[in-house]
Simulated assay, not measured.
Amino acid sequence: MNDKLAGVFIPVVTPFTDQKVDLGKLAFNIQKANQTPVRGYMPLGSNGEFAHMSDEEQLLVYKTVKENAAKDKVLIAGIARQSAYSTIEFGKRIEDIGADFVSILTPNYFASFMNDTALIKYYTVIADALSIPVLMYNCPKFASGVTISPEVVKILSSHPNIMGMKDTSTGNISKYLAVKDENFDVLAGSITNFLEGLKAGASGGVLSMANYLPEACCLLYEMFKQGNIAEAERLSDELIRLSKNATDKYGVAGVKASCDIFGYKGGEVRNPLIDCNEQQRKEIEKAFIEAGYLKLND
């Protein structure tokens, strides 16, 4: 296991104000999160609304995270583009700034053609071209259903510059862990599959919930590492239930509303996404109160 990939990572949200990237709010969030036990940050992912930003905006976001992150935090930069060529070009710009890893969502515009052969070629060409270690990112719901197969993991996990993957799918994490190379790490991509993944050998998780409840996510990880499995299962069930009752219905907008509730700065989502309305925010807040994570006067 690569120590840099052991623990809980925040898939950093990008705050917008009047639809413009708000770097001040982003810096505030990173500085606040530095005080928690999270292992590191993954900006420019799905929660970061990378698909809604230009290359220049993405670079500003990444630089802000890097400049404000504590020195002991690990940085994973999302660099996915629809072509290997464009992904490499953007990845080289991230290399110039510096990162510990780059994360690459499966290409998906031509989803019906993204078979094992295409995905193996895509990731191999990128990993050969970049010096920063590559993490694959498997998230079918954000990739038109494109799913990395266990066979692709079996082949690519032996590549010297493909060091792991983030998996945000249902029912696949154990399959990936069963076939991967020993030097390849798998990160759970959701609180829903986090404990399941840890039990199967995952090194950690990139959890949207860590944007607003980082301590609880880290506590679950520590309970598991210390062998307190019964307590870990209880907490996992609680957090999964909380996520379903609070944020899952509203996606990134729900995550950002939750950030606001817990003292972080979620900011707006970017059009065409729609912010939670006041009633939806009250529903989210009520779920946190009922679960004991928020007091009525907070």
Rank of each mutant, 00 (worst) to 15 (best):
M1S: 02
D3Y: 09
Q19F: 00
G24E: 14
L26H: 06
A27K: 06
N29C: 12
A33W: 12
Q35L: 14
T36L: 05
R39F: 04
R39H: 02
G45R: 06
S46N: 06
E49R: 09
E49A: 14
F50R: 15
H52K: 07
L59A: 10
L59Q: 05
T64P: 06
K66Y: 12
E67M: 14
V74E: 04
V74M: 10
L75A: 12
I76V: 15
I76R: 11
I76D: 11
I79Q: 10
Y85H: 09
T87M: 13
T87V: 15
G91A: 07
I97G: 02
T106G: 04
T106K: 15
Y122C: 02
I126S: 01
I126G: 01
A129G: 03
S131A: 00
I132K: 07
K141C: 06
F142D: 09
V146A: 05
T147R: 04
S149Y: 11
P150D: 04
P160T: 04
M165F: 12
K166H: 13
N172M: 07
N172A: 08
S174E: 11
S190P: 08
I191S: 01
E196M: 06
E196Q: 15
G197S: 09
C217S: 14
C218F: 02
F224Y: 07
N228F: 08
I229D: 00
E231R: 00
E231Q: 01
S236L: 00
D237E: 11
S243N: 11
N245V: 03
T247A: 09
T247D: 13
V252R: 08
G254V: 12
G254W: 04
A257F: 04
S258L: 10
K265N: 07
V269K: 09
N271F: 12
L273T: 11
E290W: 06
E290S: 06
A291W: 08
G292M: 15
K295Y: 03
